[in-house]
Write a protein that binds this DNA or RNA. Sequence first.
RNA 1: CGCGGGGUGGAGCAGCCCGGUAGCUCGCAAGGCUCAUAACCUUGAGGUCGCAGGUUCAAAUCCUGCCCCCGCAACCA
Length: 509
Amino acid sequence: MKKRQYVTTAIDYPNAAPHMGHVLEKVLADVLVRWFRLRGDEVRFQIGTDEHGIKIQQTAEKERMTPKALVDRNVPLFQDLYRTLGISADLFIRTSDKKVHWPTVEALWKKLQDAGVLEKRTYTGLYCSGCERFVTKKDLVDGLCPDHQIAPQEVKEENWFFALSTETTWLKGLLKKEYKITPSFRKNETFALLEQGLEDVSFSRPKSSLSWGIPVPGDEEQTMYVWCDALTNYISGLGYFTDHEEKKWWDDATITHVIGKDIARFHALIWPAMLKAAGVRIPDQLLIHGFLTSEGQKMSKSLGNVVKPEEVLAHFNGNPDPLRFYLSAEVPVGNDGDFSWKRIDELYDSKLRNQLGNMLNRVLVMMKKDGFGLQINSSRAFDDQVVLEWKQYDEAFENFELHKAIQQVTVWIDRMNAAFNSSAPWKLEGAARANVLSEFAEMLRHASLMLLPFIPESAQNMSTQLGLPYAKKMLEKDFVITKEMRTWGAVKDWKRVGEPSILFPPLLP
RNA sequence: CGCGGGGUGGAGCAGCCCGGUAGCUCGCAAGGCUCAUAACCUUGAGGUCGCAGGUUCAAAUCCUGCCCCCGCAACCA
């Protein structure tokens, strides 16, 4: 039976241009999604932007524009970047979208209210006029805000609160059983939070302090806070609580939220509690990635080491694959990683250019000389080897160890290079020579299929050079890697290889 | 006792969950090949796997304690 997958990423906050952290998450999700599609799953993949909130409001004021104008200016930066990177999302949702997003959010709010989990209370807190936000006593140094050197004032305001504290026990049970969290240490972390007990969370702010957002239904003086607004994108994109609900993507799919470690707790605790109150099923799993440092240090504007994805793309002449390869191979899923210019160049040269690209070229150039003909003999040994490679590859993906899957391919390419030297086909003649070369072409065919989720365009390029009949269709969303394609010598209508060309050109100094 | 991650040859990392010849990339040395994008292959030098105990026939891997880095601590991916 066909499996159905609903994959989402966090929605990005567009108060500034996208950076490498955004890219890490989207590439991770995209690789996973492409693998799902290639194995034949029915997939829906959603990304988007979280456009409301005080920060957008403030940034807009600074730049003397309306919040709407600010997000309309910034959101295309994200959309264009993701298009260039080949992020194969089916829907890009924007929380400022009153047609797609708002109806679901408003309906959800009412459902929560009906369920009795929302309550209006007076909240008393310390407000720093410099930060323009509430601070806690722990933030203060000698009673002063460390950023602004002023004493915060005690302010009372009305907030709607969501009853999370009562869900502690239920959430423990949920995390123990149904709700899977990868990597597992994030689950332990969440349990530690639960042990401390949960507090109710603020679900709205007065319009006077937060105006850029969705008004609370029936209480126009209040604006929704991030939770009910942003998290809800995962179901508003499916039209939930409207006349065009696409329930099959939620009720009958495996739901995977790909998110960063900073928002893990909200997805692990608040989101399920909201859904429970609204009578909607709980998602299946969270895939939580770490953060990227830049040249070993925390990425920050003040250090000036923020890496812009556009610069990386430009460095490789607009080819997204070196960056996709780097993030997939160098950053183990769940761990923090580092972005280094030196390292990405190193990897490009050694792995992609000298090992992969050159391997393909050395085979194809010889085959071209011999007239492009292909003759793959059946072979028990190669059969077994290919089966094993695919098995390990699948296992890595199933455990979300994407770095292992791609590293396995590069290791195989390594072995091919060594085997090519010891086979020394340039010393052979006739049928022996043709057979050896064809064997390498067949191995490269498998490798290009395995690389497809990671570096789609380059993998397709490989397959085109190999002259594969299916090469043209490889980037289509309904392309599936069939049993034949995974079997040694089983692509029967593949008789000739194509014209060789340089897969990864040397970089200009 | 707030929470978590990390400390492995010159640099950067994997391995640790499921103990059993210490692996990868770059760099370095020597040799080989000549099909190929001056690419490829082989061999070698270089590590008491943060420190100290413990469990075990056997520990980078499990347990305990300590030291040092780095994040997070409710809206910075």
